[in-house]
Amino acid sequence: MAEAVHQAFDPLSTGSRAKQIRSKTIVYGLLTFFALLYMSPLFIIFINAYRPLEEIVREGFISAPNTMSWSYWGEAWSTFCIGGNCEGVSRYFVNTLLMTVPATVLSTAFGLVNGYALSKWRFKYDAWVFGLITLGVFLPAQMTLLPWAFVLGKLGVSNTIGGLVLVHTIQGISFTTLFCRNYFVAVPDDLIKAARIDGAGFWRIFWRIMLPLSPPILIVCVIWQFTGIWNEFLYGTVFTSGSNQPITSAIVAFSGSGTGERHYNVEAASVIFAALPPLLVYVFGGKYFVRGLTSGAVK
C-alpha cells in the first residue's frame, strides 16, 4: 500500500537492452509467483463459498466450480447453526463489532492522552511509568490469561462482551501509548511552553494543539487496534462461550458443531464475513497507516 514518495534509482533500467529484459522478467516473474501464492487461500475460500456441498465433497476443495449458488452467503449470515444456535454468524459479527469498536476507541483515546502526558510533561518516575506501560507490548497474551480471568471474575463480567472490551482496551493501551508517545516526542517542546505562557492548561493544550496534530498517528492506532482486536481469538475463546463469543471464536466452534457433517461452503462464506472488515480497513486505510508510521508531527 505504500505510495512511492520519490523516484528511486531503478537498477532494472540500466545496462544493455537484453540484460534489461532478462532482469525484469526474473523480478516480475518472482513477484507474481509469490503474489499468487499469498492470494490463493483467499481465492479458494471465495470460490468454495459458491459451490454446492456434494460437489466439494466429490471433487475436493481445490477445483473449478461447475454449478454456483449465492444461497450459502445468506445461510452463513442468518440461519446456519453454530454450537446449537441457528442464527448464522450475524450474531457473532455483531458481538465482535460491539467488542472492537469501543475497545478501539477507548484504547486509542487513552493512548493519545498517555502519549501526550509522557512526552510533554515531566513528573516523578515518568520513565518508569512509560517502561511499565510498554512492557505490555512484549508480554505474551497467554501469560495474562489467568490474571484476567481473576479480574473478570471479581468484576462479574466473565462471559460478557463488556469484559472483552475491558481486556482489549487495557491490553491495547500498551501499543497505543508507545505509538503516540514516540510520535508526540517529535512535537517541539516550545509549542507547549508557548501555550503555557498563553494560559492554556493540560487539557486545553491537548485539545487545541496536540490533537489537531494527531491524525496520522490516530489512524495508525485505529487501524492497528481495529484489525488486532477483530482478529483476536485467544481471549474470546477463553473468556466467553456460546452466544457471547466473538466471530473468530465462533468460527472455531464449527468443527465441534452438530453431527460431524461439515458445511464447507457455508463455512467458507462465514470465514469471509469474519475477515471482511479488517480487510476493508486495510484496503482503504493502509496507505494512511504507512504514511502515519513514517511521518513526523510537524513539517
Binding site: P188, D190, L191, K193, A194, A195, I197, R208, I209, P212, L213, V298, K299
Partner: peptide
C-alpha cells in the same frame, strides 16, 4: 503576566 517570543517562533502549526 509575561509574553515570550521563541527562537523557533513556536507558532501553533494547525492554527
Amino acid at each position: 503576566d509575561i509574553a515570550m517570543v521563541f527562537q523557533s517562533y513556536a507558532l501553533y502549526p494547525t492554527m
